[in-house]
Design a protein around this nucleic acid. Structure first.
Lengths: 202, 202, 202, 202
DNA sequence: GATGAATGAGTCTTCATTCAT
DNA sequence: GATGAATGAAGACTCATTCAT
């Protein structure tokens, strides 16, 4: 009975945390991070102000969790896709993976805006150090890494090249989707994929 | 006499504007953008608060001008360097250009921090539309473009590829210099240059 | 004209500062220090919140100034009284001085409450170091000191004894007026004066 | 059996109360009264927040009990000392008593700080009205009172003089130990004792 | 053109207290 | 009796911007 009680309380806590999470997400992508006040978040979540501080340290804390959570879920989906498709060429796999992410952000411009301005690799590093919580990321990273290793990439280079592919992709996505600079994402995609292929060819 | 007086007044205005500019620059790279208040800027510049709004729309406005001005001067220097060196290989030219910029930001970490967080290509676009004011940028762009054109790059692709090279370089510089992620800039450089070469090879 | 203008502005500033001062005083003695919010003060003074911070660092700052200002004015009055009376006995002078202060606080219980809880000798020390601003205090201190010196008190002891007389007086005043402990001020007075006489007798 | 159970429960309650008491004491003298939150106290005591309110009305309540308890125990020790020493001069007895308290607070500066800011004679009055709980205080008071009575002090005056001696001692201790104003406690002691002697001499 | 006093909305954060479990 | 999640009022302080002089 005590267990049941605790589980109910625990459940409530998760629900409340999620309410805050969702409210913050909605507001951040609608009004932007800076223009969103804690007050807005709690009002939308239907909880008291103090409750916010029970679950998050401050506005930056909830933002970090948000970025990680959203990124993680995109990556998870992209990962599932390439698993299902079963390419035997590793470059095709990377391209397909990338394509999924491009398409995702085409439909989530505001999220892209938010994420981009607040993204830091420190965040991802932390995430990869908690494999239980962000196992999709870990899995995605490992899959790509092992693919490249098989192709004869030196250990030393793999990480750096992958990092650059990711950074380039991120930049192009942001710039072309949000600013249409230097061109629309549709026109950038073929060039981007070509570049990725070149970068990944030994 | 009226002319003389006017020119003196005009000169005074430029001096005042520059004072604000320099003060803002010093403060931004010391304390960061967010932590710098208009109040700090005007105090350091030795002018009244209202005067700030006579010369700049707001804090973002002065920041944009700052980024443009500083970027422009780095590019100018890099440009001068590759002109002096006289490579006949266009890829070497790009690498040398890039190298100059990397080295510059290694010695100006704070500026790099500021610029990165506030960079937008809209800014550069505007700059390129005022060739008289930012002629170094225009020149640099034209030089690289014509080099690639000679090599047989299709007009359509040149701009996009160049854009990607710049974005990749920017990302790597920021990440490796500021965060040492995924490695130090020294260790990233050879890989970065290799990637650039691949990207620029037909 | 410029002078006139400046003096008008300067005058306005003093008026505004005084408004805040008076509002704070009224509220502190009515509601107490802790229960008075900056908001209350500015509303009562009829100025904006930010204006408060133009004149005072925080609530403690205005309180310190208040204590000093009020103490200073009581002391000034007490000083004037003993000057007018022209006692030739130094003990009578001290007693008369003390009596004035006792009577003053009998009629200003709330001020006594506030002052007592926030009094610190550091404050007075600072005040005595600005003789131009708090010259009454300086004068009072010097007068008493020189009286005792003439009577043969060793320099070493004068300050300590005077300190104790002041502390004792303060304690008795506070306790008897505010708490009527251990008796009313009327009944404490003769004993207090007797004790002071004993303390000041060589 | 019911009795046994009840006594065990009762014991548990006392233990819990003491835990809160000790935790509060430690925190108050470490961080100060205002900076200590109920939350800190219950965490340190290892109980839930609500439990605090089962034993104490609020933060002021636990503070009052703390002051009384600590004061009572110092006084008890001081009392024991003068009993052991067996002076036949009543003034020496008071001086010795005082000296013990001075020495005690020299080694417990933080406690002194806390007590001073929150001391009120109302507290002691209450204590003296519960002789069973604070019998040391009652005893000390009676001992000193009867000493003075024997010397011919009028009943009326005894209480007041004693009150003043206590107040003076308290003020000097606080000021000299905490602020070293107007001098260190070592240098104040001889003057303080001399004053006490004068005050107690008929 | 220049000034700088004044504004007041906006923001985060703390914490004593309650009450359903 | 005990718990601790939830509350939400209360509070201090900041700062970009305006405008009368």
């Amino acid at each position: 009975m005590s267990k049941e009680k605790n589980s109910k309380i625990h459940e409530n806590k998760i629900i409340k945390r999620n309410k805050l999470f969702d409210a913050a997400y909605d507001l951040f992508i609608t009004k932007g991070f800076t223009s969103t006040a804690i007050d807005d978040i709690v009002k939308k979540a239907g909880v008291a102000k103090g409750t916010f501080y029970l679950y998050f340290k401050d506005k930056y804390d909830i933002m970090d969790h948000l970025i990680l959570s959203k990124s993680s879920s995109v990556i998870k989906e992209a990962l599932q896709k390439i698993k299902d498709e079963n390419y035997d060429n590793y470059i095709d796999r990377v391209i397909s993976f990338t394509d999924y992410i491009v398409e995702y952000f085409k439909n989530n411009k505001m999220l892209l805006k938010i994420i981009h301005k607040n993204l830091s690799f420190g965040l991802f590093r932390k995430a990869l150090q908690k494999p239980e919580e962000y196992k999709e990321m870990k899995e995605a990273a490992d899959l790509l890494l092992s693919s490249l290793k098989k192709e004869g990439f030196s250990n030393d280079r793999i990480e750096k090249v992958l990092f650059m592919v990711i950074e380039l992709t991120g930049s192009v996505i942001y710039s072309s989707i949000i600013l249409e600079e230097p061109d629309t994402i549709e026109n950038m995609k073929p060039v981007l994929f070509m570049m990725i292929k070149k970068m990944l060819t030994i």
